[in-house]
Design a protein around this nucleic acid. Sequence first.
DNA 1: TAGGCCATCTGGTCCT
DNA 2: AGGACCAGATGGCCTA
Length: 150
Amino acid sequence: MSLDISDMDLGSVTANILAEWKGHDSPFGEDQDSLHSASPESSMDSMCSSPEMCYSSGHQEINDFSFGFPGRKAAPAAQKHGKPKMSTKRRMKASEREKMRMRSLAEALHQLRDYLPPDYSKRGQPLTKIQTLKYTIEYINQLSDILNRA
DNA sequence: TAGGCCATCTGGTCCT
DNA sequence: AGGACCAGATGGCCTA
């Protein structure tokens, strides 16, 4: 991984991108201004760091989950009649997998964030997931430009 | 207090 | 049948 790009280039790339984004409120037209969010690590794991703990926060005994649970989405039409519901065991397993899947997604996003120059989070607040993706796209484009011109 | 961000739960759909 | 992926809903936390 030895792209022969000088620090100056990287620095100017970052500066360019940031300047550009500041200029017209992000090319993607979204929350350029919302560089705030819970701190990455804390928000990541502050709520429930272990699946079990999480589960116990309300759904440990979910024999008839989603029914006697105010606030939960009502069962869609397909489920009202006949259509066999997922067994509780299978539902729990699926939830667990989904949780892991989303965590790995979040983790990948955090790693990706680390590859971006620190300038991006200049306001002291970590980038949000969406910002991380958008900045990354922009950053890659800029780096590609440099390589193409070289 | 409102709004943004995030993690989690859930049902549906597609694929193996 | 079961796993992966997705989108909608919900509630908690944090900041302006």
